[in-house]
Computed example of a mutant assay.
Amino acid sequence: MENNREKIETILKACDEKKAYSFSVIDISNISTIADYFIICSVNNERQGEAVADEIINKMSKIGVKLIHKEGYQTKRWILLDYGFAVVHIFHKDERYVYDLEKLWSEGTDIDVEDYGIENWN
């Protein structure tokens, strides 16, 4: 976890700076080969979703972490950023509960975002 701690913190702080909310970090390393973590947040509208995604890409690039793949920029209702070690899911508030990734990946381990200095509000 220590190896990825700075990366996760960078992602969460980028989300927080753009006023995303309702953060979840799920360690899926023991149940999937997709990634080690899912990082999930909500936004209020499409423009905010794009701003959050752009901020994450910018901040991660500054610490030398390259984006592998991105999806969802067309509709901006569910933007996915794949960094290999983690997949970031930026959901429009109305879409998040439709897909309910937290329930789908409930066998993973929830990580308290407050350990990263982020206050989690819903």
Rank of each mutant, 00 (worst) to 15 (best):
E114A: 11
I56Y: 00
M60V: 00
D36R: 07
H89T: 07
S22D: 15
E46N: 15
F23M: 09
I111Q: 04
V113T: 12
V52G: 11
D54Y: 03
L81P: 07
E46T: 15
G72L: 00
S32G: 04
C41T: 11
W121H: 14
N4A: 02
F91H: 01
A51S: 15
I26H: 10
D54T: 10
E50R: 15
I26C: 06
E46H: 10
I56A: 02
F85S: 06
D82T: 06
K76A: 08
F38W: 09
W121M: 08
N44F: 05
A86I: 02
K59F: 00
W121I: 15
K59N: 13
V43P: 09
S29Y: 08
I63Y: 00
Y83D: 04
Y73R: 08
N30S: 13
R5H: 08
E107R: 12
M60F: 00
Y21S: 07
I11R: 00
D110K: 13
S42I: 03
E55D: 09
I63W: 00
E114K: 15
I40F: 12
Y73T: 06
N120W: 09
K18D: 05
D112Q: 09
K66C: 03
K66Y: 02
I31D: 05
Y99F: 15
F38Q: 04
K103T: 15
Q74I: 13
K19G: 02
S32Q: 11
K76E: 07
E107T: 04
A51G: 06
I63M: 04
N120I: 11
L12D: 04
Q48K: 12
K66E: 12
V25N: 05
I79F: 02
I34H: 05
L104K: 07
K93H: 11
A86N: 00
Y83G: 05
N58T: 03
G64F: 00
N120D: 14
W78F: 06
H69Y: 14
I63V: 05
I56Q: 00
R77M: 11
C15T: 08
I28H: 04
K13T: 14
E71A: 14
N120G: 11
Y21G: 03
G108A: 04
S106G: 02
R96H: 09
E6A: 11
L80H: 10
R77L: 13
G84F: 02
I28S: 03
V52K: 09
E71I: 07
A53N: 07
N44S: 13
N122A: 12
D36W: 04
D100W: 03
D100P: 02
G49K: 10
I56V: 12
G117R: 09
N45V: 08
T109H: 09
